[in-house]
């Protein structure tokens, strides 16, 4: 098992943790943090593969992901604030107005 494989396992593990957090999390802030975790798991995979293939593509992709992540957090937190203003709560199971 080479060094890269280990990083990939780590990446997969972190990604799965993030997914799990998104699925079971009730607090929107926690969900946002889990999304961040997923993004960063992908970043690790990019870095590892960039080293493995000896190219810079992966590293560039990481920069993109980081800037998108920053934007995502900005929008996400804005949504959380609006959510709180409307429902006086940031729990997802309180915002169920769209239930059919």
């Amino acid at each position: 098992m080479g060094a890269v494989t280990g990083y990939l396992y780590l990446s997969a593990l972190l990604f799965s943790l993030g997914v799990l957090g998104v699925l079971v999390g009730r607090n929107t802030i926690v969900i946002l943090m889990c999304v961040e975790l997923m993004l960063n798991a992908v970043n690790i995979a990019f870095e590892a593969l960039s080293v493995h293939f000896q190219t810079l593509d992966g590293q560039i992709a990481v920069f993109f992901v980081m800037s998108v992540a920053a934007a995502e957090v900005a929008v996400g937190l804005a949504i959380v604030i609006t959510l709180f203003r409307n429902y006086l709560s940031v729990e997802t199971h309180d915002a169920v107005t769209l239930r059919g």
Binding site: V19, V22, L23, V24, G25, R26, T28, I31, T92, H93, A95, V96, T97, L98, R99, G100
Partner: peptide, 18 residues
């Protein structure tokens, strides 16, 4: 029947998505 899918819970939508 189908309207029951629209639970309004974000987590269930996310679960379906995944």
């Amino acid at each position: 029947v189908l309207r029951r899918l629209q639970s309004g819970r974000t987590s269930s939508y996310a679960f379906l998505m995944f």
